[in-house]
Design a protein around this nucleic acid. Sequence first.
DNA 1: GTCTATAATTTGATAGAC
DNA 2: GTCTATCAAATTATAGAC
Lengths: 203, 203
Amino acid sequence: MSAIAVSTEETILEAARKVFMQKGFAAARMCEIAKIAGINQALLHYYFRSKDRLFEVIFAQQSQNFYANIISILHSDVPFFEKLRMMIAKEIEKISSAPYLPMFILNEMHSNPERMQCNGSVDRNTHFFKTFSELVEKEYEAGRIRKVCPQQLFLSIMGITMFPFLAQPMIKMALEIDGKSFEQLMQERAEHASELIIRSLQV
Amino acid sequence: MSAIAVSTEETILEAARKVFMQKGFAAARMCEIAKIAGINQALLHYYFRSKDRLFEVIFAQQSQNFYANIISILHSDVPFFEKLRMMIAKEIEKISSAPYLPMFILNEMHSNPERMQCNGSVDRNTHFFKTFSELVEKEYEAGRIRKVCPQQLFLSIMGITMFPFLAQPMIKMALEIDGKSFEQLMQERAEHASELIIRSLQV
DNA sequence: GTCTATAATTTGATAGAC
DNA sequence: GTCTATCAAATTATAGAC
C-alpha cells in the first residue's frame, strides 16, 4: 500500500484509458491495453470480464470528468460577466490537460447513443444548462445584457471553448502551426473567448 | 442509362457512405454495407479491392464536400460584416443537410492523422484561412472593427457554427429537446451566430 | 493473481461456378 | 457482373497450470 506501488487494477485502467481515448472503442485492441499495462491479455479478462465492461468503466469515469463541476462557478457570488470569464477559463484549462476528452465523449455518444444513460451525466448536464439559463434571463431583466436566446448562447460558449480541441488536427493544418504553437494559442484562448462573448452581450 | 436505374457502383458508394459516416472506419462492417446495398460481400471486393480502398474513396469525396467552396463568398463584393453573415449562413445550411459530416471528418483525422494529406484539402484549407486573415487585418486598419487576433476569430466562427452538430447528442440531452426541436434551433442559429460575432467585433 | 496455450468468434478477403 | 461457399487473419475470451 505504498504511494509508489499501484495496484494492477489501476495500471490496467490507466492503460485502457490511454488506448480507448486515442482510438475509440471499435479501434482499440485488448492486446495493446495489456501490453501497455505490462501484463497479458488473460489478466485483463480476470479483472474486467470483457472489452465492453472495461470500456464502460473508462467511459463512465471520463464522462464524469467531462461534466465535472463548472456549475459551482455559476453559483458563486460574483458578477455575471465574471462568472462567464471564470467558466470559460476553467473549461479551457480542464480540456487543455486532457485534449482528447471532448472528442472521445462526443464521438462515442455519436456512434453509440445508447451509452448516454449511464450514470447521472444527463441530470448534471440539464441542471447545468437550467442554472445558466436562469442567470441569463435574470441579467436581461436587470437590463445588464441584451435580449438573447439562452440556448443559442449556451451553444456558442461551448463551441468557442471546445471546438479548437475537437478540430485540433484540422486547425493545425489550416493555420499551419505545430503542437507547440497550438498550445500557445490555447493558452491565449480564454481571454479572447471571454472578450468575444461578453462584448456580444453588451446592451 | 435511365434516370432511375443506378449503377451498382453508385449503390455501393451510397451504402458505404451511410455506414462509414455513422460508425467511422473501425466500427463499420463490410457485410453491413453489402446488405444495405442489396448485394453480397464478394461483389464489394470486386468493385473496390478492400475496406481501406472503399473508405478512401468515401473519405476523399466527403472531405471535398466538407471544405467545399465557402471561399468565393470571401472574394465577393460586399461589406465585411455581410461576408461573415453569408459565410456563417452558408456553412450552417451545408452542414444541416449532412449533420454527420463534421464528426466523420474530424474524428477520422483524429484517429488516423496520416489520411490528411489526401487530395488538396490542406491547400484549400490554408488558403481559406489566409484570405480570411487578410480581410480581418484590412478591416482593422480601416478602423471598421476592433483589434482582434485573426486566428482566434477564425476558431470562434468555426466553433460557433460547427460545434452544435459535433455535439448533437449531448446538446439534445442538455437542452432536453428532440430531433425536431434541434433542427428548429439550427435554423435559427445562423442569425444568432452572425449577430454574436459581428457585435463582438464592433469598435 | 498471474501466466501460457488455445478455443471461439468475428470479419475482411478470395476461389470458382454461373 | 454476380453469386455461394470458404479461407485466412485478427481479436476477444477462456481453460488450466503455477
